[in-house]
Simulated assay, not measured.
Amino acid sequence: MALAATIFKADVDLSDIDRHYYQHHTLTLARHPSETSERMMVRLLAFLQHADEQLKFTKGLSETSEPDLWLKDLTGRTRVWIEVGMPDARRLTQASGRADQVVVYAYGRQAQLWWKQTEKAVARLANLSVYLLPTGFTQVLAEMVERSMRVVCSIQDGQLYLASGEKTVDVDILSCRVRQTAS
């Protein structure tokens, strides 16, 4: 018998001053049995960075043909394809052909090495942005996990501040960006 996903609820107040986006989101996060708390919280972080009424969590690890999150317009066209982790260059190339913008949030001890090995293979992808998140930051995110979370997030001048319960964490998200989508 296969293990079922664990359901987490996140009640989020988001103030993204950089994008002039101020919204309350009630999110349901399904954590796949093989997914860590750290990965799930990086998915939440990705949502917060790109928050929009059309941005959706996908089946993620359960469906290999989908990203972790995507934003589709009303015609079904994929505007933003968001990957969490360290996808291979082939997957990023395919995503680049299917979406207007592809964003990767890589984390963990091997993220720097992954990027060093992948960078050349994806150099021609003009619509790809990559963020390498600091390990200490993502570990604190993982410590924030509760089945029902109340999260406050503010983003200003590239600085992301997150609070949940007694824990707080912040990161200069712009300093984590190692590759930016060409304009």
Rank of each mutant, 00 (worst) to 15 (best):
R31G: 02
Y161M: 12
E66A: 15
D68H: 11
S65E: 12
V145L: 12
H20L: 13
V103W: 01
S15Y: 10
T6Y: 00
T93W: 01
R91P: 05
D16F: 08
L128A: 11
R90A: 14
L55K: 02
R177V: 04
V42G: 07
T138H: 04
T75R: 09
H50M: 11
Q180W: 00
Q101S: 09
A5S: 14
R124F: 08
M1W: 00
W115E: 02
V103L: 13
A30Y: 02
Q159G: 00
A2S: 12
E35C: 07
R19L: 13
Q112L: 03
E143M: 12
A99Q: 09
V130C: 04
D16N: 15
H25E: 09
W114G: 11
I155D: 02
Y131L: 06
K120V: 12
S37V: 00
L55I: 04
M1I: 04
I82P: 03
R91W: 01
S129D: 12
V122G: 02
N127C: 03
R177Q: 15
T26S: 11
I155S: 04
S148T: 08
Q159S: 00
L55S: 07
L74Y: 08
L44I: 12
R39A: 12
A89R: 09
Y105T: 00
T181E: 10
L74I: 11
T75F: 11
Q23V: 15
P87H: 04
K72C: 14
A121F: 04
L55V: 05
R39G: 05
A10N: 08
L141N: 06
L174E: 14
L125N: 13
Y105R: 00
F57M: 05
S175K: 15
L45C: 07
T58C: 09
R177A: 10
K116H: 11
Y161N: 14
I173A: 03
C176W: 01
T6Q: 14
E119M: 10
E166Y: 04
Q101L: 07
F8P: 00
F8W: 13
A95F: 05
T138E: 07
L125D: 10
S96P: 09
G158M: 05
R98S: 14
I173L: 15
E146M: 08
A46R: 05
A51I: 04
S183K: 10
C176F: 00
W114A: 08
P33N: 10
A2V: 12
Y161C: 13
R124G: 13
A142C: 06
P87K: 07
T93L: 04
A30L: 10
L27N: 08
E35T: 06
M1C: 03
H24R: 15
M41G: 10
L14K: 09
T28G: 01
G60N: 06
I7G: 01
T118F: 07
V145K: 06
V152H: 14
E66T: 14
R39K: 12
I7V: 15
S34E: 12
G165S: 09
L92G: 09
R77K: 13
T26W: 01
A51K: 03
Q112F: 00
K9I: 02
A51M: 07
W114P: 13
P67E: 10
D157F: 07
Y161E: 13
E166H: 06
G108W: 02
A142Y: 06
L3P: 00
L133R: 02
E146F: 02
S175A: 15
